[in-house]
């Protein structure tokens, strides 16, 4: 039991389960999944489908956070990617042409890779603090997205493009497969040694350099990957509504993504990262939104709940906070330990 509680997924899973349970009590048919025209329908499926862009962005963010970084520009990249794809499709002669769709998608993905590279270069080569470096693209990126869409909402009428975000494959939403694919790619960091390098750079950059780890390359690659994830999320989002809105697409995504990462158990101080934790974190956020919708409270109030979740999670992760509490139970023991670590270092 003790081991179970200590597992990093225990608390996130509990929260998710509690939320789902609440929904079940509130609306007994919450778990019902029906089959319609070969598609599955139901609240759970919706959560997965609507939550997939966030999951994608959060996966990318996890790796960035693991290197002690942060990427504030993901929301802007989401908007740019959707805008570029929709613009390219809307300019085409036949919006349903597969070649056009492919080119548009590749264009959007390619561009988001470049944007990720930009962030990565600023952080790893120019040595600018991540928050500041990515702030530039966060501000300018919104403008770029609006520039691409001309300030309008670009709508496309392409069944093939719509398939990415709202089609279904083997009765399940196609977006779920996209998420799984990206998650698998991200999990490759565990199969290769990249994950080890990411964690070691995030935990102790100096020692990593002395151990011969190419810290710059590691940092560069996580920002590029994060850009890629945000780009794909942008495609899902714009395809789901068959339109691109430079102004509002992906708004607050950076914050939700960071929240998902933190709920998932990855510390903002870098080091250990938990991809599955992040996915559960993102699902918690999406379920929360759905729940609040369902009980008829204005959805904007989710923000209040999010505020308390952020604070609670950070307080739990804060050493000083834990120390303040621990001191009540085991007096003097903890401070003494602190002192010795300070002394030895």
């Amino acid at each position: 039991m003790g081991r179970l509680v200590k597992h990093h997924l225990f608390w996130p899973l509990c929260v998710l389960a509690a939320l789902l349970l609440f929904n079940l009590c509130y609306s007994p048919d919450f778990f019902t999944i029906t089959m319609h025209d070969g598609h599955l329908y139901g609240s759970l499926i919706d959560i997965l489908n609507f939550g997939s862009p966030l999951i994608l962005v959060a996966i990318g963010m996890t790796l960035v956070v693991a290197t002690k970084g942060i990427d504030l520009s993901v929301g802007s990249i989401v908007a740019i990617s959707g805008a570029v794809a929709c613009l390219s499709i809307s300019k085409g002669p036949d919006q349903n042409s597969l070649v056009l769709i492919l080119i548009s998608v590749l264009l959007a993905v390619g561009l988001s890779l470049v944007l990720g590279l930009w962030n990565g270069l600023l952080v790893s080569v120019a040595g600018i603090q991540p928050i500041i470096a990515t702030l530039i693209l966060m501000v300018a990126g919104r403008g770029i997205a609006q520039l691409v869409t001309g300030g309008q909402i670009i709508t496309v009428t392409s069944a093939k493009y719509a398939y990415i975000g709202s089609g279904s494959l083997a009765t399940l939403p196609f977006s779920i497969f996209v998420v799984i694919l990206v998650l698998l790619i991200a999990l490759l960091t565990r199969r290769t040694a990249l994950g080890l390098f990411i964690e070691s750079v995030g935990c102790n950059p100096t020692a990593s350099l002395m151990a011969g780890v190419r810290a710059k390359w590691v940092i560069l690659s996580v920002y590029i990957f994060c850009g890629l994830c945000a780009g794909i999320a942008g495609l899902l989002l714009s395809s789901n509504v068959s339109s691109a809105d430079g102004n509002n697409a992906g708004l607050w995504y950076e914050l939700d993504a960071i929240l998902a990462v933190v709920i998932g158990g990855t510390s903002l101080n870098g080091g250990r990262y938990y991809l599955t934790g992040t996915v559960i974190g993102a699902l918690i956020i999406q379920t929360l939104t759905t729940t609040i919708y369902m009980i008829g409270v204005p959805p904007e109030i989710t923000l209040v709940v999010k505020a308390f979740v952020v604070l609670a999670v950070c307080l739990i992760q804060s050493d000083s906070f834990r120390a303040a509490f621990a001191a009540r139970w085991k007096t003097r023991h903890y401070p003494a330990e602190k002192e010795i670590t300070r002394h030895v270092s």
Partner: peptide, 11 residues
């Protein structure tokens, strides 16, 4: 258009 403001500020 107004979005140029953001781009210029970003720059």
């Amino acid at each position: 258009s107004s979005w140029w403001t953001k781009i210029v500020i970003g720059l």
